[in-house]
Amino acid sequence: MDITNYVVLAAALFAIGATTVLLRRNAIVVFMGVELMLNATNLAFVTFARMHGDVTGQVLAFFVMVVAAAEVVVGLAIIVTIFRTRRSASVDDVNLLRG
């Protein structure tokens, strides 16, 4: 199968994830967008590893998974805490850093 298809798929997934992050207000959904972007990246890594016959890309994919797992833990904890204090999971309600 042509390797281009994998790259296109990875790009499409990344674009969907990025759009989700930029357009959705619900923190959980935004979070899912982030996960989608990470996995799109993983797909690209693995694809290129396969293309070059080199395992470096696969190793990097593992690293990304580990970081993503840690990030999920921290991120979900933050979202839950925000929800508890504000009774809302909308990212637009968290705007204390406005200048």
Binding site: A18, V21, L22, L23, R25, V30, V91, D92, V94, N95, L96, L97, R98, G99
Partner: peptide, 17 residues
């Protein structure tokens, strides 16, 4: 320059993207 700091996470993300 302060106007850039809207406090909305999404606008920062858009900036990065």
């Amino acid at each position: 320059f302060r106007r850039a700091q809207s406090g909305y996470v999404r606008s920062y993300a858009a900036g990065m993207a």
